Computed example of a mutant assay.
Amino acid sequence: MRKSIFYSIAMLAALLIAHPAFSQKVNKLTSQEKKDGWVLLFNGKNFDGWRQCNGTAMPANWKIEDDAMKVFTGEGKNPGQGANGDILFGKEKYKDFELSIDWKAGKMANSGIFYYVREVPGKPIYYAAPEIQVLDNKDATDNKIDSHLAGSLYDMIAADPATVHPAGEWNTCLIKVKDGKVTVSMNGTEVLSYTHWSDEWNQLVENSKFKNFEGFQEGISKEGFIGLQDHGYTVWFRNIKIRKL
């Protein structure tokens, strides 16, 4: 019996060493992350710092559940109908940064992670901001176009769907922006690489639905807010952290 217990302890210790995430608490920073300049944008307890896009308070269709921010179908709405619930971390704008965020999709879910959000009264969050897609790749109605699948630069560059875990399982998205150069990773695998304010970027916009968006015609901002989308489906977000570069 004693040998079996010692063996179990040894195996657990090996797992913790091999996979540090097992030992890291949700919505907490390790001492090394703090040294490296990471800060939390969500403390797991409340919406401190977050607010409605073009608003001052949190929308009613967001709540804290299981240490995560949860967006759900708004009252009186049907799935797929947002309830004006797009949100921003409104304390600060970011220019060069690394953003890490865990997300989990409900069945048929559709949402997005935005950066460089420029608030314009009467305009939606996607008016002039790049979006990394959040999606239930299997059952969402918007799964017919490759660049609309999870991890993609929405309607511009497709990500490899094999890097994305299915609905009901957590994914980690890492977005790095430095001097206009962007890389996006899903669950540890790089899936996107592109450069803002370049001929490549202009062509991506021209070949997308955004070519007729006034905000994209004006040009995306060189700094802005971090935002999350309410698309009328259930999605969870946690471990939201950022560091300036």
Rank of each mutant, 00 (worst) to 15 (best):
61 N>A: 13
61 N>H: 13
62 W>Y: 00
62 W>N: 00
62 W>K: 00
63 K>C: 12
64 I>D: 03
65 E>N: 10
65 E>H: 08
66 D>F: 03
67 D>M: 14
68 A>V: 07
69 M>T: 03
69 M>R: 02
69 M>D: 01
70 K>C: 04
70 K>E: 06
71 V>M: 06
72 F>M: 11
72 F>Q: 05
72 F>L: 11
73 T>E: 11
74 G>W: 06
74 G>Y: 07
75 E>M: 14
75 E>Y: 10
76 G>S: 07
77 K>F: 03
77 K>D: 05
78 N>E: 15
78 N>Q: 15
78 N>M: 14
79 P>G: 11
80 G>D: 08
80 G>C: 10
81 Q>G: 08
83 A>L: 08
84 N>T: 08
84 N>Y: 08
84 N>A: 12
85 G>M: 10
86 D>Q: 06
86 D>R: 04
86 D>Y: 03
86 D>W: 03
86 D>L: 05
87 I>H: 05
87 I>R: 04
88 L>K: 04
89 F>C: 10
90 G>W: 09
90 G>N: 14
90 G>M: 11
91 K>T: 14
93 K>L: 03
94 Y>S: 03
95 K>Y: 05
96 D>P: 00
96 D>L: 04
96 D>W: 01
97 F>S: 07
97 F>R: 08
98 E>D: 13
99 L>R: 00
99 L>W: 00
100 S>C: 12
